[in-house]
Design a protein around this nucleic acid. Structure first.
Lengths: 272, 272
DNA sequence: ACAATAGTGTCTTTCAGACAGTATCGC
DNA sequence: GCGATACTGTCTGAAAGACACTATTGT
C-alpha cells in the first residue's frame, strides 16, 4: 500500500488546520412551546454565569463533539433534561415533537468567543413545572406575551424579562415557524393530550395564532380534513367551564399534511 | 472594579473547556439550483482530495471562525466564488436568492473528524458555466435527473455520479424546500431574468415540480394573485420555437407571499 | 331560567380545474 | 396552409366564511 505523500500532507492540513488555529464552538438551543391556561408559553432558564448572568435565555449548551459524540437532536434533548429536569424521552411525558429551527452564527453574538448555535423547536402538551439544573439558576414556563416580542425579533423597551444573546430573534423565528406549521400540518395535536376534543384543538390554534376562530366553522373544517383527527367513539366526562354539551373525544389521525390547509385569517399585512 | 474571582474562574472554564478538549469544525455547503435547457440543475464540484476524492459534492468549505470571522451567509457566498468562480454578489449575475436550508451534524458523517455542516439553498437565473477553483478538481451544472435521487435522500444503485458525505440527503432536502416554496412564495421569479414571460415562469414551475401544468389556467392564476408579477407593458421580441403570438413581458411584483397559493397537483401520496 | 357551548345546516362568494375558442406566430 | 402557442371565456365542483339553529350543559 503505497500512498502519495503529497495527499497525506493535504489530508493532514485539512484535518488539523481549521480547528487548531481557527477554533469555534457549537451549541444547541431549544425553543420549547406549550399551552398553559389558554396561552402560549416558552421554556426559559435564568443564566447563573456571565455573560448575561441573571438574564433569561433559551435552554441550551455545548454540543459534545468527540468525547461522547452525539447527534444534534440528542444534544437538544440532553440540554432540555439537564437544565430544566424535563425528560422528553420519558414515556410518561412522551409525545413531544422536535424539529430543527435554524442555525445562528453571526460573529459577536456571544461576547466570549465565536459560537454557532443550532436552534431546535419543540411542541409539547402541558408539562410539569421545570426544575433548574446545570448552568441554570432558575427555569420556568413564561407566557409569550410577557416578553414584548415584535415581529422583527427584538423586545419592546420596558420589557421586564430581557433575553440573552440573540435569543429574542430565535424565539421570534420559532413562533413564526409554529404559526405557519399549524396551517398545513397536524402539529396542533402535539400540544394536546393523547385524547382531545375539537374545542381543545381550537384553543391550541387560538393560542398560537393569537386570534379567535369561529367555533362552528372550525369544527366542520377539522372533521372534513382527511386524517387530521379520528374519533374515539367516546365523550368527554365533563363539559366546558361555562356549560354546554359534553364534547366528543378524538385522537390524532395518520395525516402528515393537512389538505386542504387551515389558513390563518386576515394576514393581508404579511403578504407584501 | 473588583470582580468575583470565582466567576472569573467559571468564565475561564466555560470559554476554554469545550474547544480545547472537545473540538469540532463547522462548514457551509450550498445547494445552488438553476434552470438550464428546460430542466433543473444543481451546481456540483468534483473533490480533489480525500475523503471522497474524485466524487461529486456540493460546493462548500470551512467557516472562518476567529481570524477573518464571517457570518454564515457570507461564508456560503465565498465558498461559491472560490470553488466555482461564480460571484453571487457581482451585479452582472445579481438577483440570486440565498436562504438557510438546515444543519447536518450526525457523528461520522465526515470520516476525518466531527463536522457540523450548515447548508444553504440558492436559486439563480441561468448562470455561466462554473470554473473549478480551490479544492475542486472540476465544477459543473448537473441535471437533477442524472443523480438518481429518491425521496428518502439516497441515490438509486447504478447512478454514475455518487455524491460525497451525506450530500444526497442535503440535496433532497433542498429540492423539497424549493418545490414547497414555489407554492406559497414568488421565488419562481428568482429563476428568471429581470423581465420574463408567463410561459417562461410556467417552465420554471414545470422544471422544479417535474410536472406539466395547464397553460391557460396557469396564466390566469398567476395574473390573479396580487403582487406576483407586474406588467412591463412591452412584448417579447420573439415567440416560442414553435410559433404562436409574442408573449407579454412581466417583472417580479412586490408580494412576499402568494395568496392564494399555487398548489402542486396530485400529491395525495405525500399526505400520509 | 339563563347563558354559554357543541355540533349541524344553509347560503354566498371565491377559486381550481376542465374545456372551448380566438388570435398570432414559425414553418 | 398547418400546427403550435398565447391568452380569454365559461362551466362545474370544492371549499371558506358568515349566519342561523338545535341540543345540552353549569350556574
Amino acid at each position: 500500500m503505497t500512498r502519495d505523500p503529497r495527499s497525506d500532507e493535504d489530508e493532514f492540513l485539512a484535518e488539523y488546520d481549521p480547528r487548531a488555529y481557527d477554533p469555534l464552538s457549537v451549541t444547541v438551543d431549544v425553543v420549547a412551546l406549550t399551552i398553559r391556561d389558554g396561552g402560549l408559553h416558552v421554556l426559559l432558564v435564568r443564566r447563573a454565569r456571565h455573560p448575561f448572568a441573571g438574564a433569561w435565555a433559551l435552554p441550551g449548551g455545548f454540543v459534545r463533539g468527540v468525547r461522547g459524540a452525539e447527534d444534534l437532536p440528542e444534544a437538544a434533548v440532553r440540554e432540555l433534561a439537564e437544565e430544566t429536569g424535563l425528560d422528553v424521552e420519558d414515556g410518561a411525558l412522551g409525545r413531544v415533537h422536535l424539529e430543527q429551527l435554524g442555525t445562528y452564527g453571526a460573529p459577536g453574538r456571544d461576547p466570549r468567543m465565536r459560537v454557532i448555535s443550532v436552534a431546535y423547536l419543540a411542541f409539547a402538551p402541558e408539562l410539569p413545572d421545570p426544575e433548574a439544573g446545570g448552568d441554570a439558576a432558575d427555569a420556568a414556563w413564561v407566557p409569550i406575551g410577557r416578553l414584548g416580542l415584535t415581529g422583527a425579533g427584538v423586545q419592546a423597551p420596558g420589557t421586564t424579562r430581557r433575553l440573552a444573546f440573540d435569543h429574542a430573534r430565535i424565539l421570534a423565528d420559532g413562533l413564526e415557524r409554529a404559526r405557519a406549521k399549524l396551517e398545513y400540518t397536524p402539529l396542533a395535536t402535539a400540544f394536546c393530550a393523547a385524547e382531545f376534543t375539537i374545542p381543545e384543538l381550537r384553543a391550541v390554534y387560538e393560542a398560537v395564532w393569537d386570534e379567535e376562530l369561529h367555533a362552528g366553522n372550525f369544527h366542520r373544517k377539522v372533521l372534513s380534513v382527511p386524517g387530521f383527527v379520528e374519533s374515539t367513539g367516546t365523550t368527554s366526562d365533563r363539559a366546558g367551564r361555562k356549560g354546554g354539551p359534553r364534547p366528543r373525544l378524538y385522537r390524532a389521525g395518520d395525516a402528515r399534511l393537512l389538505h386542504p390547509a387551515l389558513l390563518r385569517p386576515s394576514r393581508e399585512e404579511e403578504i407584501r
